[in-house]
Design a protein around this nucleic acid. Structure first.
Length: 489
RNA sequence: GGCGGCGUAGCCAAGUGGCUAAGGCAGUGGUCUGCAAAACCAUUAUUCGGCGGUUCGAGUCCGCCCGCCGCCUCCA
């Protein structure tokens, strides 16, 4: 089985063939550090976290680089507004970003280079571009000469004529072509500055990724990723810079994920309709957010709503609850008894890993992979439900193995990391902490109710149950006695 | 205007021409229960925005139309 990946450059899915056998070199454009991250950033981080985890699960070595843009116009502006330095501002939000990533359960990349720590590499690359007549100096600025790069527009599927027709491009008189973009910007007073052959200044936005990816991955590497909004101009320009300077192919697979929308509109800072990661994590567990994000394919738009997140919480608990219930079963039973599991359910359970891989191999189809997991959860529940008083060892083994596979594959997606029983408890404790009732009080009421039930005083028993339900506590009567849980939602 | 994408049940969503159109959430009926809850079983799209075409066969390919969205300026 091979993994196939959709490539923005070709517009088709193609089997993953790495440059170096068994080793994937991945570069993802990270954040510009000047504000808290919103759930669009979370989607980006989670999508590539999932891709990295899956590739490693499939025995690839993955070198994952995700950069920080720590110098740019927005940072300078924001730092001035907050009366601080660019360095302080970007360090602060990089710290916030790391906190968010940890809370999301996102694995750290292999390397997280910063633009300001690679100014020399950037300058070197710009000099190479000038030497090849692909860039030119105007005053203290340096621009890339887009007309000299034959493939310009190939990634985003545009050509220079069409783009010039667009009305929103402001024409800078000093540029030779309106689409030429800055590699180096001469600095104004008060701005962070580095010395360069073109005078004091700072790097343009796109060049940092070309310089850093070359330093750590080499001139060519396997996968370059980011949000769809980076296709143009950022990645188009990176491609032009890198191939222009290096004289060889830059990236084999361009992977771009879709946006998070709110009410069918793109969530973005300029529209002001965004939710920060920390706002969302205050209300929902990280794994619920993850399940929500992976419930649709990574290239499709995803509409955020509290309903959708609540659905994800319910779905996640459904899996955990299934695993917790199975975890309580003995591992051995009657060796001679015939298994009660149907052939069909057995087959569903034992083929889970294979079907999961098939879905994931197909351009990381997490939605389908999760569908298979849920299908198996249903089968496991069904078998468990129908277990006789003295269950067959064969059934118990099937249940335990099935549950182990579900959890293991869930973890490939970064889900189901908790011990199932502990998760259910933790979930409840958290909600319980916001309530006025204590577990002891609940237990006392349950004891009273059971006494009433024994006395066949149903009215009193129901009264207690309804009273608890009003406070958000659900009771479950079964053979083992009465247990309780916090009512979901 | 240029480029790209989407439209599958009440909602979310998978479906790389061919067995009964995954899965989740919500709903309804049943099993279980003193009654519930949970879980399970059954049920909810003869049909995939509309109209044509290609094909033995189309949700899937092609054309046109309708509706929605994104990029073309900083953006994940």
């Amino acid at each position: 089985m091979t993994i196939s990946i959709y490539n923005t450059l070709s517009g088709t899915k193609a089997p993953l063939e790495t440059i170096e056998q068994g080793h994937v070199k991945l570069y993802v454009c990270g954040i510009t550090a000047y504000d808290y991250c919103h759930i669009g950033h979370a989607r980006s981080a989670l999508v590539f976290d999932m891709i990295v985890r899956y590739l490693r699960h499939r025995d690839f070595k993955v070198t994952y680089i995700r950069n920080f843009t720590d110098i740019d116009d927005k940072i300078i502006k924001r730092a001035q507004e907050q009366n601080t330095t660019c360095d302080e501002l970007s360090s602060r939000f990089i710290r916030m970003f790391h906190e968010d990533m940890e809370n999301l359960g996102v694995l750290p990349p292999t390397l997280e280079p910063k633009a300001t720590e690679h100014v020399q590499e950037i300058i070197d690359m710009i000099q190479e571009l000038i030497a090849k007549d692909l860039a030119y100096q105007v005053g203290n600025d340096v621009y890339y000469k887009v007309t000299k790069f034959a493939g310009y527009g190939s990634l985003s599927g545009r050509n220079l004529e069409d783009m010039q027709a667009g009305a929103r491009i402001s024409v800078n008189e000093e540029k030779q072509h309106p689409m030429d973009f800055a590699l180096w910007k001469g600095s104004k007073p008060g701005e962070p500055t580095w010395e360069s052959p073109w005078g004091p200044g700072r790097p343009g936005w796109h060049i940092e990724c070309s310089a850093m990816s070359r330093k750590y991955h080499g001139k060519s590497f396997d996968i370059h990723g980011g949000g769809k909004d980076l296709i143009f101009p950022h990645h188009e320009n990176e491609l032009a810079q890198s191939e222009g300077a290096n004289g060889e192919g830059f990236v084999k697979y361009w992977v771009h994920h879709g946006f998070v929308n709110i009410k069918d509109e793109k969530m973005s800072k300029s529209l002001g309709n965004f939710l920060t990661i920390r706002e969302v994590l205050a209300d929902y567990p990280a794994e619920a957010l993850r399940l929500f994000i992976f419930s649709t394919h990574y290239r499709n738009p995803l509409d955020y709503s509290s309903t959708a997140l609540n659905d994800a919480v319910t779905g996640l608990n459904r899996i955990y609850s299934c695993l917790a219930e199975i975890g309580q079963l003995p591992t051995t039973g009657n060796d001679k008894a015939k298994g009660a599991a149907s052939k069909k359910d057995m087959q569903k359970i034992t083929s889970l890993a294979e079907r999961f891989h098939q879905a994931m191999d197909n351009d990381f189809n997490t939605a389908q992979a999760l569908g298979h997991i849920f299908e198996v959860v249903k089968a496991l529940n069904k078998i468990r439900q129908h277990l006789p008083a003295e269950p067959a060892t064969a059934d118990l083994t099937l249940l335990h193995q099935g549950a182990a596979t579900v959890q293991e594959l869930g973890q490939v997606l970064g889900l189901l990391n908790d011990d199932p029983a502990a998760h259910m408890e933790k979930e409840q404790d958290q909600i319980l902490s916001t309530m006025t009732i204590t577990p002891d009080e609940i237990q006392a009421l349950i004891d009273q109710r059971n006494q009433a039930r024994q006395d066949k005083n149903w009215a009193r028993a129901d009264e207690i149950r309804d009273q608890l339900l009003e406070q958000g506590i659900e009771l479950k009567d079964d053979a083992a006695g009465t247990s309780w849980q916090v009512k979901s939602n």
